[in-house]
Design a protein around this nucleic acid. Structure first.
Length: 755
DNA sequence: TTCCCGTCGTTTTTT
DNA sequence: ACGACGGGAA
């Protein structure tokens, strides 16, 4: 029996609980993950078989972390730890037949989804401007989250007033599901929805699974939607050993169908449930915790709890006021640089959170000017890049011929004369026959109106895909190389000096190395299907690298679950926090979610927390006076007015190096702004590093990253070690496969692209 | 088939 | 300010 002395009494209670439902209400920083992993270990020590345990999280990142911590505690036990979607995907693959799918179904990403919506809207002769595919998709997604089928949605709509948009969505919903079915494809919502259907329509299967997963744990339970609730409940009927953990105060996905009620109602749902409250915070200083607690106390819809900590008071939470967004970004960057130089802070100690992604740009510019390395969580997703999507579409088509989105993406790429006219004829035939586009292509000679030439071209395409799938022998990377080869995909860009083409080649290479990585990791279980699943369920947040040694920039939503010594929450202004959209309908629920969002952001901070606001801010290009956020009045904050700051180079708290950078270019300029001219970047940072290409230095390097050397050309980072000045990296060059090791701060290597 | 230009709509997005 | 989409010209 393991020692529980390092846990607080409530933590021990949660860890030692074995049979029956358990609700763990865990405040921020209360050691929740620790409790969950220790409890899993404790279950196993008490004789529960590992495969009877199912732990569900929302993000891959959380799942991976939990898995590795469980592995540390009790090595080599196979506990199923997975995200909701991945769990459902697995389950669905094994019983796809029950909902009319084949086990090799494709998972559509949101881009594919919208493209499909657009096509349907066009086919139904709806204006895609007035009825934006994204909006229709959102309505349908909301319906699915409420477990409404197309028919049920239609019926529910008939009973209420319903907008025009709803009426269109209802029509589209039907066709959309129809096309998904003929494509042998599902969207993210369907993964959950189909599993709910399977569980409710097949009682024996349900009870088998209930029996098999005798101990179910769900993390971040406050973010579950109706479908997820149903799945969890279905697995916990005969063996209600259901443990859910979460914090109603951190529910920030209501707009996506999450039902905060699921956690609020848990006790009435399971009257025999034991409730454990983890209210002691081990993360933040007392000042930070007190301030956040004051804010959240203004919410009505919550389980009140008292957050405590024995951490020192620390510095008070400050409210920094700036003249505008430009000054805000610039001064935050300088403050971070100063803390790095004077207080021994690491870059990775800092995080900057904002409500909307558009605020990141100004911050990025400022960090660049200060030569501060940073990473933006989100931005253009790797898997959204055109080259990656193209190759992915070929892989998907090889895996599932009926995949409509994949077919359309590659049928004429590279150009092979199968244009719009041919495609639309295939489409008409496929829709009328309820067959897939692939089947239409295979039966091209039966499709009315196709020219002899078109039939020939389609046959060639069909043969091409068939020949690709012959090459599918396990290794995904090998298959991908075959595909690239067969279509001469990279030919047009090879040897081209243009930046864009280099970028394209590097995207292809990065994707290839992702496939190689998968091959290696999945070892003998590797399969095309497995790779595609991994890819389509991957997200940007998963790519956040805590060890990258950079300042982190992300939205407040993405910040959940993370912690940083020093945090800036920018743009705490009316219309931003709370966001305009949430105040419009005057719905207190929506305002409360905004308050929770700010609460989540604030409680990420361990030692220092700064909220910032501006007097004027440019929104969509227009400079507007800001209005004070009502949330600011709910907290005790130390006011610091930074708006008088002048850009004089000798200002007291500008660091020497940063000041130099101003002298370089801007000392004489009349306008009190630092512009984005290239020379400034080079000059300022050059002084910092005594080199002429300083703009290249700030960007950190990461494993697998594509870099370019002025003489050796393109290469891949294959090894990293050491920190800051002693950071070294090894690069394998493409042209000759040679490996060279460099000191990160003194090499002429330039990262290719933004990933 | 492709490319260029004008119009429009701009939250958050675990999967 | 900026990007995405759709229509029209080449």
């Amino acid at each position: 029996m393991s020692n529980l002395n390092d846990l607080t009494p409530p933590q021990q209670q949660a860890v030692e609980h074995i049979e029956g439902p358990l609700l763990v209400l865990a405040g921020p920083g209360s050691g929740k993950t620790r409790v969950i992993t220790r409890r899993i270990a404790s279950l196993i020590e008490n004789g529960v078989r590992p495969h009877q345990i199912l732990a569900i999280t929302f993000t891959n990142k959380a799942a991976n972390e939990m898995a590795s911590r469980v592995e540390d505690l009790i090595p080599d036990r196979r506990v199923w730890i997975s995200t909701f979607h991945r769990f459902c995907a697995r389950l669905l693959r094994s019983r796809a037949d029950l909902v009319g799918l084949q086990s090799n179904f494709s998972i559509l990403d949101s881009t594919d989804q919208q493209t499909l919506m657009r096509q349907i809207l066009n086919d139904l002769d709806f204006d895609t401007v007035q009825y934006a595919p994204g909006k229709i998709a959102a309505i349908i997604s909301r319906a699915k989250n409420k477990l409404q089928s197309a028919e049920e949605f239609e019926r529910a709509r008939g009973e209420s007033i319903g907008t025009h948009l709803d009426a269109v969505a209802s029509q589209v919903y039907r066709d959309y599901q129809q096309r998904l079915r003929t494509s042998n494809a599902v969207d993210f919502d369907d993964l959950l929805l189909h599993v709910v259907t399977i569980l409710s329509e097949n009682p024996e299967l349900r009870s088998d699974l209930d029996e098999r997963f005798r101990y179910v744990l769900v993390d971040e339970y406050q973010d579950t939607n109706l479908a997820q609730y149903r799945i969890v409940a279905a697995l916990s009927q005969d063996h209600p050993n259901l443990c859910v953990t979460g914090d109603p105060d951190q529910s920030i996905y209501g707009w996506r169908g999450a039902q905060i009620d699921n956690i609020l109602r848990f006790e009435s749902e399971f009257p025999q449930a034991r409730v454990v409250r983890l209210e002691e915070n081990f993360r933040s200083t007392a000042s930070i915790l007190r301030t956040a607690d004051c804010l959240i106390a203004n919410n009505v819809q919550r389980k009140s709890k008292s957050l405590t900590t024995s951490n020192p008071d620390g510095t008070p939470v400050q409210l920094l006021t700036f003249e505008d967004g430009h000054q805000e970004a610039e001064l935050i960057a300088r403050r971070i640089r100063k803390a790095f130089e004077d207080d021994g802070r690491k870059w990775s100690d800092f995080a900057i959170f904002y409500r909307v992604n558009s605020l990141s740009r100004e911050l990025e510019h400022a960090l660049n000017r200060q030569a501060i390395p940073y990473q933006v969580v989100a931005g253009l997703a790797f898997y959204e890049r055109a080259e990656v999507k193209d190759l992915l579409a070929y892989l998907r088509l090889v895996n599932n011929r009926d995949d409509r989105a994949a077919f359309l993406r590659v049928v004429n790429k590279p150009l092979r004369g199968i244009g719009k006219t041919t495609q639309s004829k295939l489409n008409v035939w496929a829709n009328s026959q309820n067959r897939s586009l692939w089947e239409a292509a295979v039966n091209a000679k039966d499709v009315p109106g196709l020219s002899k030439r078109a039939v020939g071209l389609l046959t060639r395409f069909v043969n091409l895909i068939e020949s690709m799938s012959m090459a599918d022998a396990g290794s995904v990377a090998d298959l991908m190389r075959t595909i690239i080869d067969k279509i001469d995909y990279t030919r047009p860009w090879e040897g081209s000096p243009s930046e864009q083409d280099l970028q394209r080649l590097s995207n292809v290479n990065e994707f290839l190395s992702a496939a190689e990585q998968y091959d290696e990791q999945a070892a003998d279980e590797r399969s095309l299907e497995g790779f595609l699943e991994t890819v389509s369920l991957a997200t940007d947040v998963d790519r956040f690298d805590e060890s990258a040694g950079r300042v982190a920039l992300m939205t407040l939503h993405a910040a959940k679950g993370l912690e940083f010594p020093a945090v800036y929450v920018v743009g705490v202004e009316e219309e931003l926090i709370p966001h305009k959209r949430s105040t419009r309908e005057n719905d207190p629920k929506q305002i409360e979610e905004e308050r929770r969002l700010l609460f989540v952001g604030m409680t990420r901070a361990m030692e220092e927390l700064y909220l910032t606001q501006t007097r004027r801010r440019a929104i969509h290009g227009r400079m507007l006076e800001t209005i004070r956020s009502p949330f600011l009045g709910e907290m005790d904050l130390v006011d610091v007015d930074c708006s008088e700051f002048e850009w004089a180079p000798d200002h007291a708290w500008i660091s020497q190096t940063a000041a130099n950078s101003d002298l370089g270019d801007d000392a004489n300029s009349a306008a009190p702004t630092l512009d984005r001219r290239k020379p400034l970047l080079t000059t300022g940072a050059a002084l910092l590093n005594g080199e002429s290409h300083a703009a290249e230095i700030p960007a950190g390097f990461s494993m697998g990253m594509q870099v370019r050397h002025p003489r050796h050309g393109l290469g891949t980072v294959v090894e990293l070690s050491g920190f800051s000045k002693r950071r070294t990296l090894t690069v394998e060059f493409q042209q000759d496969g040679r490996r060279v090791t460099y000191i990160a701060s003194k090499c002429p290597l330039q990262p290719v692209g933004s990933g």
